[in-house]
Design a protein around this nucleic acid. Structure first.
Lengths: 174, 174
DNA sequence: AAACAAACAGACAGACTTGTCTGTTTGTTT
DNA sequence: AAACAAACAGACAAGTCTGTCTGTTTGTTT
């Protein structure tokens, strides 16, 4: 059996994604992770600190999966297509729950800056990814914006329709 | 003094936008609206029903303000520009709090379908707005996607940068 | 075997949540 | 003036929340 810390992280990751941050309590996390409350607070000072840890782990996981998709191809165009296919893939394995970072952004206040800065870093890194792939600043921002709304709109409509639409748009842009 | 129902709606509207849905309790709403709890439950069966009422009122307000901006010009291009200027305007008067509909989407579960369907209707109406303005399905979806992420990204970065960026992109598209 | 750290169980504080209920006061209509 | 509806105040139920605390058990290291 994995360590308490791992069990907490795995359970929190699942529940934060499935139920959202505010609707998931510490008690549910520790009970489903089979961890004592005292053990939880030995590893994390607060729920917000767990949130930061979750988002950092999520950032690592999400980007490494994105890279797996992107690196399947060599031409810029195909690599960008792959990025959009990655959204479809994530939608399917996670049941159209959208972007964990943007979801949590909607749940917190502007005073929770530790959380906020991890979210900002994640999105800045994504922007940088498109800049590296595409060079041009205008074009990369353009595709970043399409990418972002593709994720959000799939969540709202439970559908990949606008991801596909974005791919067609990108096809005419590059 | 306005009616209890109006006071509830005004207070809820402010608090849901400023604090989010789940972090705003009935008790805070009635206390700040100077309304008795029994009066609240005479007008609204539940908090979720208040949420639906809030979103419907928000939909009316938001679209009528959008139309004020759009109708300032006659050419399609200028009208679309005006729509993006409307985002800037809303960002400024509401301190970059993003889209109420998408924020609440992130807070609720997929079982809260009454709320969910008001959100979907709002976004479908926005898509239809761009379709009517632009005719072409591909182009209108394209601009809808840029419009959506412009709102979300301003919220995240507390900035109109990507709204301006979108305007430049739109300038090259139409 | 003694000592140590880590994890355990679970009570507890204090505050919050939504929603119900009783009973009182106010204002309008007849 | 009597009758009515609407709003009032606020206690209450039954549950949730985060975080602290005490004390016990387990497993490893010395």
């Amino acid at each position: 059996m994995s360590s308490p810390r791992e069990r907490i992280m795995d359970t929190a990751s699942l529940l934060f994604r499935q139920q959202g941050y505010n609707r998931t309590g510490i008690n549910q996390i520790i009970s489903e992770a089979n961890v004592a409350k005292a053990s939880f607070y030995q590893h994390f000072k607060s729920k917000d600190e767990l949130c930061v840890a979750f988002l950092k782990a999520r950032h690592e996981y999400w980007f490494s999966e994105l890279m797996k998709y992107v690196s399947k191809s060599k031409t810029t165009k195909k690599r960008i297509f792959n990025a959009f296919d990655f959204i479809r893939y994530m939608n399917e394995i996670e049941d159209f729950r959208g972007c964990s970072f943007l979801n949590i952004l909607s749940e917190i206040s502007k005073e929770q800056d530790a959380i906020l800065s991890v979210i900002k870093k994640h999105k800045n890194d994504l922007r940088k990814f498109f800049e590296k792939e595409l060079g041009e600043e205008q074009l990369s921002a353009h595709i970043y914006l399409l990418f972002e709304s593709s994720i959000t709109e799939s969540q709202l409509f439970n559908s990949n329709e606008l991801v596909e639409r974005s791919k067609k748009i990108v096809n005419n842009l590059i």
